[in-house]
Design a protein around this nucleic acid. Structure first.
Length: 445
RNA sequence: GGAGAGGUCGCAUAGUCCGGUCUAGUGCGCGCGACUCGAAAUCGCGUGGGCAGCAAUGUCCCGUGGGUUCAAAUCCCACCCUCUCCGCCA
């Protein structure tokens, strides 16, 4: 691929003025079916500047036709001046061209300002939900699609990982906090190794069995990457940012993976493309302390194995089901109960057209832990990142569809393993599938 | 971090000094056709994208963004990226 610098989708002041224009939600759809778009957005419970967009779009097209006619005339006049080679008769033409130029300049500034506002507004437009997504207000309306596996029956009271971990010496909260503050911890000995085993095993599973290509991406990215994957503008406050170099720490491998084929036009043969990446993830998570943040469930830094797929519009929903099944294999092979939740419109968020969560049962803290979130983002990210494909040589490029899903998030999977495999004496049995990655250790004690 | 070279229509290159027949030439690749029993070779034609428009067509794009000019691939400024040498190092 040609190493070209992607234009930044904004400039100081937040006004977008690059060629990065009008490609978020298809502008034509908003223009032609505003009623439909309005209803869809309303079902998400998200505010979107649809009226602003409609007005700006109309403005833009009106100015554009005028300015293009002027430019056509100026090009003509300039050519004529060139033919005259400075001979007589050139001067009046220069005057005409000059005055046309002034009008063009004024109108161009208009266009720029209108397009800037239009692009900002378009970047605020969420993706629209698929027909198969249940209507609902919030997470209470999500649908449990299936529950797989029976919770283990304990003949003692199972402990939560925040008790088990420190006792076993595999989780150290105090020293983590001493180094880095609240919401940091460290894993130690067999605990650190168990997490590493999970990472390697999951990567191997997705590469060898599911055909994904492993990627080791950068953990810091430029701002435009976050616009492309849809983290911006919504999550600005949750992202760590190095002001000195203007680099942003990823909150998920989805961000670099989404940008993997940015500004590329692939062929149909290239699709689908499946990638899996293990990365650390960084999130500011400005939640207050409380039950939800006890233990290692929600830290500022965590590890995750992420699956990502670039695919075609006609197969993306099928691919989503496949990806969910691939994520479910992790709890299945670990022998831990899990369930699959279909998110309702009100809990879909900004970029997904359809989204499932996979949750694993943790008997110690007695809750279903979200270990994966799998989304079909349809062409939403592809439009933002100009990611296209051609069906055949010479055919018009079309936007790809992108999907992402955790192939599982780590500390939570670790929690589930520890809590499900604990024994009455406080030791933890290593699941069968992980033993080859644990140097044969069968029990952590 | 310092010094130098450079980013052109899939790839490779010409053009940039001296602004206007560059609405970007050539080769390769690719597509269609001719020749052929078939193929190679050869010959002919074609070969990007965005936006506006019912269309004809117009407009914009020579790394990105500005500026100068009647007119910018070409001149000026800033930035991004690549390469070479030096320095520094996991």
């Amino acid at each position: 691929m040609a190493p070209r610098t992607p234009p930044r989708p904004f400039e100081a002041g937040g006004v977008i003025i690059s060629w990065w224009r009008c490609v978020m939600l298809d502008l034509r759809l908003i223009r032609e079916r505003p009623d439909l778009v309005r209803a869809a957005v309303a079902s998400l419970g998200i505010e979107a500047p649809i009226d602003t967009i409609l007005a700006l779009d109309e403005d833009r097209r009106a100015i554009l036709s005028e300015v293009e006619a002027l430019k056509a005339r100026r090009n003509e006049v300039s050519k004529e001046i060139g033919r005259l080679r400075g001979g007589p008769g050139a001067e009046p033409l220069k005057d005409e061209s000059r005055s046309i130029g002034e009008r063009i300049k004024a109108l161009d500034e208009n266009v720029k300002s209108v397009e800037g506002k239009l692009n900002s507004a378009m970047l605020e437009m969420p993706n629209l939900p698929h027909d198969s997504v249940p209507a609902g207000k919030d997470d209470r309306d999500n649908v449990v699609v299936r529950t797989v596996g029976e919770p283990r029956q304990f003949d003692f009271a199972p402990l939560a990982h925040w008790d088990l971990g420190p006792t076993l010496g595999i989780i150290d909260f105090e020293r983590g906090v001493r180094m880095s503050g609240t919401r940091f911890y460290l894993l130690k000995g067999a605990g650190a190794r168990l997490q590493r085993a999970l990472i390697t095993w999951m990567l191997d599973l997705h590469v060898a069995k599911h055909g994904y290509t492993e990627i080791y991406p950068p953990y810091v990215v430029r701002e435009e990457c976050l616009w492309v994957d849809g983290k911006l503008p919504k999550f600005r406050d949750n992202i760590y940012h190095d002001a000195e170099e203007d680099l942003w720490w990823i909150g998920t491998a989805e961000t670099p993976l989404t940008n993997l084929h940015r500004d590329e036009t692939l062929t149909l043969d290239d699709l689908p493309r499946s990638y899996v990446a293990y990365t650390a993830c960084f999130r500011r998570e400005k939640m207050s302390a409380g039950r939800d943040v006890r233990g290692i469930k929600r830290g500022h830094q965590f590890d995750k194995v992420e699956m990502f797929k670039f695919t075609t519009p006609e197969s993306s929903y099928e691919d989503l089901e496949t990806m969910v099944a691939q994520a479910e294999e992790v709890p299945a092979l670990l022998g831990i109960p899990h369930r699959v939740i279909l998110m309702c419109t009100g809990d879909l968020g900004f970029v997904a057209a359809k989204k499932y969560d996979v949750e694993m049962w943790a008997p110690g803290c007695a809750e279903w832990l979200e270990v994966s979130s799998l989304s079909n983002c349809t062409d939403f990210q592809a439009r933002r990142g100009n990611m296209r494909f051609r069906r055949e040589q010479g055919a018009r490029p079309e936007y790809m569809h992108t999907l992402n899903g955790s192939g599982l998030a780590l500390p939570r999977t670790l929690i589930a393993v520890i809590e499900n495999y604990q024994q009455s004496d406080g030791s933890v049995v290593v699941p069968e599938v992980l033993r080859p990655y644990m140097g044969g250790i069968e029990v952590i004690r």
